[in-house]
């Protein structure tokens, strides 16, 4: 499959480009500690709000910290929270959603009503509600995004499981005496997981935006820890005197979301509409 993936990737220019950008950002996130040119927390008030220069290509922020270093650290935080939330919600969603759908009956009904209720709150309002009462902090932020995030996987896997749970090979496994959970994990999950994987890639962008939105509103990562959201929030105050503070993080954020989106679409094309 890997070979096929790269062969196809080479043909689709935009997807290839997206793949490269995403890998690049992930590498930055991994090695953030080693590649920041300056200390992202070190303040130098005489340099505050100074624009880009050769030694500081992205300029300085409102406390005279090197903007490039802060963006690199912010990349690490945004991407790690994004990946963590996607992995947690993915596992939670496919386990809960898949098992409920496979068992059917009352379990399926409970799943559907529970997700109905969670979906009845629009967008990130649920996360805002949780974080604003629970308090800010990385753990609470991840919790709030998780409560909201698992639903899409659960619903998706439910549809797939309902489609295949009565197929002959499942019946055959049942007749030959396999245990319910073994059948579920071995036979059903393996054949219904592809759409959820694609959803996971697409969701990465959504989670990163949600995290940045909450941080932007002052409900996520709190300063001095840099995150794209709280950097943009600070930059808003200095639109007149330091436009570079808004432009650079926006470009970085947009290119990341952009590449996640195109990569997701490519995977969708490859796995689902094959």
């Amino acid at each position: 499959m890997n070979k096929k993936f790269f062969q196809k990737l080479r043909k689709e220019k935009i997807a290839l480009f997206s793949f490269i950008i995403l890998s690049f950002y992930i590498l930055i996130a991994l090695f953030a500690n080693y590649i920041t040119p300056y200390n992202p927390y070190e303040m130098n008030l005489s340099q505050r709000l100074k624009g880009p220069s050769l030694s500081h290509p992205f300029g300085f922020d409102e406390l005279g910290r090197d903007e490039l270093s802060r963006i690199i650290m912010g990349t690490r935080i945004s991407i790690s929270i994004g990946l963590l939330v996607v992995v947690i919600t993915f596992i939670m969603g496919i386990t809960v959603g898949g098992i409920c759908a496979y068992l059917g009956g009352i379990f399926d009904e409970i799943l559907m009503r529970a997700t109905d209720v969670l979906l009845a709150m629009p967008g990130i309002l649920l996360a805002i509600a949780i974080v604003s009462f629970l308090g800010t902090g990385i753990f609470n932020l991840i919790f709030a995004l998780t409560v909201m995030g698992w639903i899409s996987y659960a619903r998706l896997i439910r549809g797939e499981v309902l489609k295949i749970k009565n197929q002959d090979y499942v019946l055959a496994a049942k007749i030959s005496g396999s245990k319910t959970f073994k059948i579920f994990f071995r036979h059903i999950l393996r054949n219904s997981i592809d759409p959820a994987i694609v959803q996971g890639v697409l969701n990465l962008g959504g989670v990163i935006i949600s995290e940045a939105s909450l941080s932007f509103l002052g409900l996520g990562i709190s300063p001095p820890t840099p995150s794209w959201g709280n950097m943009l929030s600070m930059a808003r105050v200095h639109l007149f005197d330091a436009p570079h503070l808004i432009i650079f993080p926006s470009i970085i954020l947009a290119t990341l979301i952009f590449s996640v989106h195109f990569l997701g679409e490519f995977l969708e094309e490859m796995f689902i509409h094959r």
Binding site: G205, I209, A212, S213, F216, G229, L232, S233, A235, R236, L239, F240, P243, I246, I247, P249, S250, L253, A254, T255, I257, F258, H261, F262
Partner: peptide, 22 residues
């Protein structure tokens, strides 16, 4: 349409202010 999805509100808003108000 992808550009519209990629640039979140909190980045687009300040950028618009920067270009069309300042």
């Amino acid at each position: 349409s992808v550009m519209g999805i990629s640039i979140p509100h909190f980045a687009l808003g300040p950028l618009l202010i920067l270009f069309f108000s300042i």
